[in-house]
Design a protein around this nucleic acid. Structure first.
Length: 568
RNA sequence: GCGCUUGUAGCUCAGCUGGAUAGAGCAACGGACUUCUAAUCCGUAGGUCGGGGGUUCGAAUCCCUCCAAGCGCGCCA
């Protein structure tokens, strides 16, 4: 199989920041292993070390004693005492270890340890938060992949943002990342679209023609055609009467793809690879693949068609790959595409599919199994759909008439930052309502502005000082942790790298928006209750903390692809 | 009919590899601008976690069942 010239985005050598929570969890795990004596993965997986919801339970907390109660057949309280003693003696970064009611072990981090952790922000700057957990691994993320026969709808925007942010998260975790868009430029839908375009093309040059009965909305086709005519004129008109569809097809499809690319780019969603389905059919790939499948006993003939044995590998039925008329089905392309991706050597293949395609999961997984790919290599994410709310009412759209509120309309109306924030702020499997009026509001109702406003406020303070202070001016030993607010902020900054890790591991970009919202909330509180500077003096400890916060905010917004404005 | 996803405050959603009093934001109500941007902050109120069973020290979380919503079940892509 031929290889496409795939550029893997080269990133600067990853500077690794230590993950506090992950590191401590790992250490706790080692100790528990010695208590257990034998390997018990189920127990180990249930042990958590996390930030307790209630502040009075300290900085971090573990449920280990309660999980161990059964396998050790001992009182959780007793085990908790034992764990507590161990942590107290052996963990230098910790102080005030307590045991609480059922068997929680709670403890506090030493201020000196927090300060030491914060110094990593100064050392790593814009790389603070990155880690090496994915070093040496490559990941391919494919998302959006909308057919070039229509405009992008709101749902595509959601997949676009989720895919893009997830890709950035993978990159921040040390993976080499390829962002890929699969262009369905092959098959009957495309032919149909081109037939529509050909009809309008004739119209344009004064020939009468019949528009296909079940054709695409004229408006959509017209738009793509205009771009073609502007560029090529009547070049696809033979003898002034007949359309050269061979030539028109790539031009029209190209125009549609260009339009799609432009829309996505306007919301900061850019791809490394635009993979054409048609390229899978070059150089007899299709015939060779079919032959290979038959040789391996994965395909058989029945009723004039060629079937893939997907049921044997977990699908609920076998699927046709070659139709009775000899034409390959869309699924045939899927198989070849999966093979192609695998042959490019990616360690991880992430597919983001819309909920309207979830029927594909089983056959895709079945294909992966049939072709012998490792189970963990394929990660299929199903994203639920988006409905629009305007003036408190759902926006009804008729796609047939072409009167739909497209993604382009949304980006234009709401703006790139708000669109990205809103889409990133929900988990994949929750059907989402997008409230257009809310996203447009420049007020306290809008979380995007709330977070961005932090940056503007900090910039405003910095502008008032005698010189442009940067991270290099921060004296870590002076950074204030005296008030509870300052200490909370410091801890949040310390845990940021853990958040980047978790967001990636859980395929959950919304961890980041939530984290940043929490950070913003702490900052606004600080800002309203404590002075960072006044006419007489600067509170250097606080200014230092604020400079550190600014860096983390910028890094987090960077992963989300949202701007950090200096003025608002 | 079968499958996937969802049902948590008036609204939008976290929490769902079982853990401490179920959390945020918006909306509502009451406060804070001579002071680094009030696009902010503080306070109050708001819940039979869709219903019902079960599993156990403990269930929003796991299992069963019922109800409701969205999507999907082509030799279309």
């Amino acid at each position: 199989m031929s290889r496409l010239p795939v550029q893997i985005r080269s990133s600067a050598p990853v500077r690794s920041t230590c993950l506090v929570i992950k590191d401590l969890t790992c250490r706790l795990g080692n100790y528990i292993q010695t208590l257990l004596g034998q390997n018990n993965q189920k127990v180990m997986d249930s042990v958590t070390l996390s930030v307790p919801k209630n502040k009075k339970f300290g900085d971090l907390s573990t449920n280990a004693a309660m999980v161990l109660a059964k396998p050790l057949s001992a009182n959780p309280q007793t085990i908790a005492e034992k764990i507590s003693g161990h942590i107290d003696q052996r963990w230098p970064e910790v102080c005030q270890v307590d045991v609480a009611k059922p068997g929680f072990v709670n403890f506090r981090l030493k201020d000196s340890f927090i300060r030491q952790g914060l110094s990593a922000i100064i050392a790593h700057g814009k790389d603070y938060g990155k880690n090496r957990s994915g070093e040496g691994k490559t990941v391919n993320l494919e998302y959006v992949s909308s057919n070039p026969t229509g405009h992008l709808h709101i749902g595509h925007g959601r997949w676009g943002v989720l895919g893009d942010v997830l890709a950035s998260l993978y990159a921040a975790n040390g993976y080499q990342v390829v962002r890929e868009y699969y262009v369905n430029d092959y098959g009957s839908q495309v032919k149909n679209f081109v037939a529509c375009a050909a009809s309008l093309y004739l119209d344009h040059f004064g020939q009468s023609s019949d528009y296909p009965q079940d054709g695409y909305p004229r408006q959509t086709v017209q738009k793509a055609l205009e771009a073609v005519i502007e560029k090529h004129g009547d070049a696809f008109l033979d003898d002034g009467r007949k359309v050269d569809t061979q030539g028109l097809e790539p031009a029209v499809v190209g125009a549609m793809v260009a339009e799609i690319k432009k829309t996505l780019s306007s919301m900061g969603v850019d791809f490394d690879v635009w993979f054409k389905e048609s390229s899978l059919y070059a150089q007899n790939h299709f015939e060779k693949t079919v032959q290979m499948l038959q040789e391996k006993g994965l395909a058989y003939s029945r009723e004039g068609a060629l079937w893939f044995r997907s049921q044997k590998f977990g699908d609920n039925k076998d699927r046709v790959i070659v139709r009775g008329d000899g034409q390959p089905t869309y699924f045939a392309s899927d198989i070849m595409y999966l093979l192609h991706k695998a042959s490019r050597g990616f360690d991880l293949l992430v597919y983001i599919l819309g909920a309207d395609h979830h029927g594909y999961v089983d056959r895709l997984m079945a294909t992966s199994r049939a072709l012998g790919l490792e189970k963990t290599r394929l990660n299929i994410i199903i994203g639920q759909l988006v409905s629009l709310i305007k003036m408190g009412q759902p926006l009804k759209m008729s796609r047939r008439k072409g009167e739909i509120y497209t993604l382009r309309d949304l980006v234009q109306e709401v703006g790139r930052d708000a669109v990205r924030y809103f889409f990133a702020d929900s988990s994949f499997d929750t059907p989402m309502d997008f409230d257009i009026d809310l996203a447009k509001q420049k007020s306290n109702q809008n979380p995007v502005f709330y977070v961005q406003y932090v940056h503007a406020r900090i910039e405003s303070i910095l502008a008032k000082l005698d010189k442009r202070y940067t991270l290099e001016d921060v004296d870590i030993s002076a950074v204030g942790l005296d008030t509870q607010t300052e200490r909370e902020i410091a801890k949040l900054l310390l845990f940021y790298p853990d958040e980047v890790y978790r967001g990636c591991a859980g395929n959950a970009p919304y961890f980041l928006t939530q984290y940043l919202y929490g950070l913003a909330s702490q900052f606004h509180y600080l800002y309203n209750h404590y002075r960072i500077m006044d006419q007489h003096a600067v509170h250097w400890g606080r200014l230092g903390l604020v400079l550190l916060l600014k860096q983390v905010l910028v890094n987090g917004l960077g992963i989300l692809g949202i701007r950090a404005p200096r003025k608002m």
